[in-house]
Design a binder for these strands. Structure first.
Length: 156
DNA sequence: GCCAACGTTGGC
DNA sequence: GCCAACGTTGGC
């Protein structure tokens, strides 16, 4: 059992969108970074914990808790010529990019990035390192429990 | 919109 | 294999 932070732009897929999806589950598509892909391919297991993070928005931060709900499979968007995630070098025989399914588990309150930066127990988070842009990053068990506790205090 | 930081591409 | 140029990310 491992823990992850996964960034999504809420204009594209918000945590609320996942909560509203059938079985509270969506495909995590559009990862086009090898390091992030390799985490999905090599290190994730079904049931791993996910901090669902909203990025590139007015107030970035952790919007909820989710879990890995599938093993990896080819990301369909790499084959869609008309889509922005199309990759001309990918073929169904030799896919480059993968998805996993993500299931929303619980919302809790919103934990803003600005608040996370002020918490000493979180200062080593990959997310908070200078220049860190990884869309999927590992979270330690200590960081996970700190954040889950904060999400559960003062439910929205 | 700005811009720092980082990743990728491609010429050599 | 180097590295300059370019593109992207993402907070502010």
């Amino acid at each position: 059992m491992r823990y992850w932070l996964m960034k999504s732009e809420p204009d594209e897929v918000s945590f609320e969108d996942v909560l509203a999806a059938p079985d509270r589950t969506v495909a995590w598509f559009g990862v086009r970074n090898y390091q992030a892909r390799n985490f999905m391919r090599d290190a994730m297991s079904v049931g791993d914990g996910i901090l669902f993070y909203h990025s590139s928005c007015a107030v970035p931060g952790v919007a909820g808790i989710a879990e890995v709900a599938s093993t990896p499979y080819p990301d369909a968007t790499q084959f869609d010529r008309a889509g922005k995630y199309f990759d001309p070098k990918a073929t169904p025989e030799q896919p480059r990019w993968i998805s996993v399914d993500v299931r929303a588990v619980e919302a809790g309150r919103f934990l803003a990035l600005s608040e996370m930066r002020a918490i000493p127990a979180l200062e080593d988070m990959v997310l908070l390192q200078k220049g860190s842009r990884l869309s999927i990053s590992p979270v330690t068990p200590g960081q996970w429990s700190t954040i889950v506790s904060l999400l559960r205090e003062g439910e929205r």
